[in-house]
Design a protein around this nucleic acid. Structure first.
Lengths: 195, 195
DNA sequence: ACCTAACGAACGATCGTTCGTTAGGTGGTT
DNA sequence: AACCACCTAACGAACGATCGTTCGTTAGGT
């Protein structure tokens, strides 16, 4: 049935996510990928069109995950502070639950051809805009200081979040929930000026 | 005269920095590199041992730049807050003045063989330790809140700094100095709780 | 009997690298 | 000044390996 075929295709895409995330797109050969799936290189082409097609698919999965996370946070509502907290938790969940797709989306888009790369840039801009809007909301409703620059703050917060996968190891002393809380607290209070 | 006109090893290393930073190690061929230098592929081997040797060299240059920056900040002295400011300014200067080497050091170390990769990991740990020590100092001298986690804060601050090259464009509305100030202010005050 | 995933050989292109050769410049000796 | 020995950077062909991909064939499930 079509179900078994599409499941196999999903296996290939999932394996590609893993290898692209671990070794990079250019560092992964189709024979590497085939070995990961448990098949010979040529057999992959029963399921996919081309290597670049695979990258497009993985990157789009990553983009959709972040987009869905942002949409869910917005739908949940709340003031600026609550919105920011939702966004941070959602982002962390995406990174930790879908590490390979997130990594590929965040760091391998340069390997795409120009039109596809532009779509990734646009998706990231849209996502960043949601963060910026949350910060603007919070600035107005009193959640945050009046002096903040929402655009810059959004970039800095996302910089911290996107780097989480580089150092966070699940099962350590810091739980996933505590991680999100720590990022939010750092973003809102910083390290300084004990009152 | 021969020194300035003849292509030296440094020219090759510099070109490699540019391409490794722009396209990644695996995305750069020796013929790509040769074209960048203005020579045929085989001619590169008058100057270097191997492609991986080149990566090692570029990465070590990057490591040395960050290490020197940290040493300079420490030598300058001051309390925790002043030390952190020095470290942030120094880091930004390294990234903006030596973008290619910094990028390669930060993001291409995975392509190294295991022993060399370990040395990069160690260098990054040492560098992070300087940041952590500055935060611990500041926690004791009253520059920062008592409740902060220096290890986590160091990671988060470095996450922001390492991402600067992904979005900052010199010549824009944000000067280099203002950028460093903004990062320091974000790190110390955050966005929240107007008191 | 049909469908299809997987095989395995093979394609041309490109990979990193080697090697014998060449051109051009330098220094030393006459 | 003229010679020669020497050095070095670059060339260009070629190496074996591997790249992404194609294709005719085969095995197994429905």
């Amino acid at each position: 049935m079509t179900a078994s075929r599409s499941r196999t295709r999903e296996d290939v895409v999932k394996a590609a996510s893993r290898l692209f995330a671990a070794q990079g797109y250019h560092g992964t050969s189709m024979r590497d990928l085939a070995r990961e799936v448990g098949v010979l290189g040529s057999s992959l082409y029963s399921h996919i069109e081309s290597k670049e097609d695979l990258l497009v698919e993985v990157v789009e999965i990553g983009a959709a995950l972040f987009q869905a996370s942002a949409a869910k946070a917005v739908a949940r509502g709340g003031d600026g502070a609550e919105l920011l907290r939702s966004l941070v938790r959602g982002h962390n969940d995406v990174v930790l639950d879908h590490l390979d797709e997130a990594r590929t989306f965040l760091f391998e888009a340069d390997a795409l051809d120009e039109p596809h790369r532009q779509r990734v840039v646009a998706a990231r801009n849209d996502y960043e805009t949601v963060f910026r809007a949350a910060l603007e909301t919070g600035r107005k409703d009193g959640s945050f200081r009046a002096g903040i620059d929402p655009k810059l703050a959004a970039i800095l917060i996302l910089s911290m979040l996107n780097a989480v996968e580089r150092w966070y190891r699940p099962g350590g002393s810091l739980s996933r929930s505590a991680l999100a809380d720590a990022v939010v607290e750092f973003a809102t209070r910083g390290i300084g000026s004990r009152i």
